[in-house]
Simulated scan of single mutants.
Amino acid sequence: MKEIAFEDFYQLCQNGCSTIIDVREEVEFKQVHIESAQNLPLSSLADTYEVLDKNQTYYVICKSGIRSAHACQFLAEKGYDVVNVPGGMDAFE
């Protein structure tokens, strides 16, 4: 599974990266999130992933990196180019 160091991911965010998927639940997402992130909760990802473009690279984030790792595995199996963000939103705070 591809991963990105948090410092490198943070730089991408500063430059306006628009391909961030936040797989936390909607309640968590509403509390705090990266402005350009798209919320696709892991619990419903199997029903919503097809809105994604297979020609894009997506950076997948959650609270700590566990759910995003599961989401990356699922999406990679479906043919998407995904990169896990270890540390997740905990690293932002």
Rank of each mutant, 00 (worst) to 15 (best):
L40C: 02
M1I: 09
L42N: 05
C17D: 11
F92D: 02
V51L: 06
I61Q: 03
V60W: 00
G79I: 04
I4Q: 11
K30N: 15
H70L: 13
A37C: 01
V23S: 11
Q56D: 10
K63P: 01
R24F: 10
A91E: 14
H33K: 10
F9S: 08
I66Q: 13
E3M: 03
T48R: 06
R24L: 10
A76I: 08
Q11G: 05
A37D: 02
A5P: 07
Y59D: 09
F9R: 09
R67W: 06
P41S: 09
G87L: 04
Y80W: 09
Q38M: 07
N39T: 06
V23T: 08
Y80I: 01
D22A: 04
E77W: 00
F74V: 01
S68Q: 10
S43Q: 13
I4H: 07
Q11S: 15
S44W: 00
E50W: 00
L12Q: 10
E50T: 13
V23Q: 05
H33V: 03
G79K: 05
D47Y: 00
Q38Y: 00
V27P: 12
Q73S: 14
Q11M: 12
S18F: 00
Q31M: 12
L75A: 09
A71D: 02
Q73N: 14
F9V: 08
V27T: 14
F29W: 14
